[in-house]
């Protein structure tokens, strides 16, 4: 039972961590709170199926074997994010963070309603890799195969990302840009490359979340990215705006808190689980308004 809860917490926390990382990456390099991230996720989900307003989903890309499908969906997510950067956020490069945030909110509405026009408003059933739902016995707990895959792939993604940020040139430049963008540019960091890179990564992370969500829920809904994006936002705030390790840690913490609340709350209070979660977050922020891992650049310099 407790082991089962641990797996639940790890897999849910892992998804939150990946989503939070996608938001923190972009916030780090250009102080943009990307309210369109949830719609990036939804877009990647709908890229799996053929556009139509029918109730039954016809697999397009989703019918391809996993070896083709996974890279293709990651590319779709990255492509959408880079296109948004080029069309919307590049012209706003020098705008205030507030204007950027509002623009991303508007972009999210545009993408969501675009999906609505193309696919209709009703949720559609999708079965992606249904064989992964089977439970396997692990250390005395019944764990769905999918959960193990999610946990493993989250760890792999995080490890790859850490290596990339620590070892590669673009990773170094991204960390420099997150620290102090103006100074990094003066030292020869290519702004466009770094920002486009951050968007591409963020989009690919959104697509990862999308694949996991579809495999878990078996539903495609235009609103599906919203809830997870909200939790991811909260994770980035709790983790300290712009701190990547903070976002990951807070993502896992929120996943754990969410699973713990689900288990601990009395039955009649369970529908309010998310409300308790958000309330908990406000409580944490009252004690540490700067977040758990405040980035050095969080305080404005005078």
């Amino acid at each position: 039972m407790t082991l089962q809860l641990l797996f639940d917490a790890l897999s849910l926390g892992g998804i939150y961590a990946i989503a939070a990382l996608g938001i923190a990456l972009i916030f780090g390099v250009m102080k943009l709170v990307n309210f369109a991230h949830g719609q990036f996720i939804a877009f990647a989900v709908f890229a799996l199926i053929v556009p139509s307003t029918d109730a039954v989903a016809v697999m397009g890309l989703g019918a391809a074997p996993a070896l083709v499908l996974v890279p293709a969906i990651l590319a779709v997510g990255a492509g959408l994010a880079v296109a948004s950067e080029y069309l919307v956020f590049r012209p706003l490069r020098n705008a205030s963070p507030v204007a950027l945030m509002v623009a991303s909110f508007a972009l999210g509405v545009v993408i969501q309603n675009g999906l609505l026009v193309a696919y209709g408003g009703r949720p559609k059933a999708i079965s992606l890799w249904p064989e992964l739902g089977k439970p396997v016995a692990l250390l005395g707990a019944e764990v769905p195969m999918l959960q193990i895959i999610v946990i493993v792939s989250v760890l792999v993604v995080l490890a790859l990302l850490a290596v990339m940020l620590k070892r590669s040139r673009i990773g170094l430049e991204m960390r420099a840009a997150a620290e102090d963008f103006g100074m990094a540019r003066l030292l020869g960091v290519r702004a466009n490359a770094v920002i486009a890179g951050a968007f591409a990564l963020s989009g690919a992370l959104a697509a990862t979340v999308a694949l996991v969500l579809v495999a878990q829920t078996g539903v495609a809904d235009v609103r599906m990215g919203g809830q997870i994006m909200l939790v991811a936002f909260i994770a980035t705030v709790v983790g300290g705006m712009g701190s990547l390790p903070g976002a990951v840690a807070a993502g896992f913490a929120l996943g754990a808190a969410s699973v713990a609340l689900q288990a601990a709350l009395p039955i009649e209070a369970r529908p309010f689980r998310d409300a308790f979660l958000y309330g908990l977050v406000i409580l944490v922020l009252l004690l540490r308004p700067q977040g758990l891992f405040a980035a050095a650049s969080a305080k404005p310099r005078v």
Binding site: L230, F233, D274, Y278, P289
Partner: peptide, 19 residues
């Protein structure tokens, strides 16, 4: 909270009321 973090917290508040 500072400006941007406060904006996100208001979003959480909206979701909380809606839930």
């Amino acid at each position: 909270l500072s400006g941007i973090a406060a904006s996100i917290a208001t979003f959480a508040f909206l979701a909380m009321v809606n839930t």
